[in-house]
Simulated assay, not measured.
Amino acid sequence: MKKVSFAEFGGPEVLEVVDAEEPHAGPGQVRIAVRAAGVNPADWRVRQGQVLKAHPVELPSGVGIDASGVVDEVGEGVEEVKAGDHVFGEGSSTYAEFAVLSAWARMPEGLSFEEAAGYPAVVETALRIIGQVGVRAGQTLLVSGASGGVGSAVLQIARERGIKVIGTAGAANQDYLRGLGALATTYGEGWVERVRRLGPVDAALDLAGTGVIRELVELTGDPGKVVSIADLGAPEHGVRFAGVAGDMDDALAEAVRLISRGRLHIPIAKSYTLHEAAQAHIDSHAGHTRGRRVVIV
């Protein structure tokens, strides 16, 4: 089979499409014929060797954790799905023609493979960090870098829970944020004052890693009310860096519930082929995404 792999840590140029042996489902796993794989910042952080303590890597390594596809092999003990079922979930080396998933759910009716691949990691992350920051119904959450995949999920989940959201993003994404129910403002010079004019902030999330941790602590008045998923230096300011994933099974169940009720939709910003994986990482690293990027297999 074909898969994207890297034999050394480095820039996007280390990625290559190689011929590899097909993986097989172990106990409690399923194998899918991959139709699409989500592109996450974690993918290029792993490729760069940034997060080896949390994500040990044996080289050469595949790439990707999110995927959607058709079940074609079921491991021992798996009873809730069968060959031919359409699923989305989390696994390893998902930029490939076949991948093994360790957590999955049946795709909601009407959802395309391309769309489904964009949900697993971002919904799990959004649910986890909303919980970690301790924001409740009636309070205000500031989201820095709100237009990407995680931001899109955070805004919609917060809206569902009665949490008011102020989101920062580029000028081109202001209407997008408002369409998701947020009060929107641009980042850049003067952004702190623009946020203050929108009202007091109870908690804040840093999703972009643009060096705003100090300002987020200032706006909330408490480093314990700030969580970052993108700034590795956040702990220097007493802020939690949320780098370890939580319960993916629960996250997928919640994603299915919200998608099925029409309460969650994350658009696809751009699609790539396996041979365009390096460009997908370049674009993901650059940010300014509206929604998700996916690799089509």
Rank of each mutant, 00 (worst) to 15 (best):
S102I: 09
F88S: 01
E79H: 15
L180G: 00
L101W: 02
N173S: 15
V154F: 08
V165G: 02
G162L: 15
V165F: 08
A184C: 13
L101F: 09
D85V: 09
F88W: 15
E97W: 03
E80R: 15
A126R: 00
R106V: 15
G188Q: 12
T125S: 13
G84F: 11
G84L: 09
T125D: 09
E90L: 13
R161P: 06
T185R: 03
S152T: 15
K82A: 14
R159H: 10
A153N: 03
A169P: 06
K82E: 14
A96Y: 00
S112C: 13
R106Y: 11
F98L: 08
S93L: 03
I157Y: 06
H86M: 09
G77N: 10
G131N: 13
Q132M: 14
V133S: 06
Q156Y: 08
G134M: 10
Q156S: 13
G138W: 04
G84R: 07
H86T: 05
S144Y: 10
A96V: 03
I163S: 05
G179D: 10
E90T: 13
A117M: 08
A169Q: 05
Y119S: 01
A184S: 14
L155G: 01
L127M: 14
I163D: 03
R178H: 12
H86V: 07
G181H: 05
E124F: 07
A184D: 04
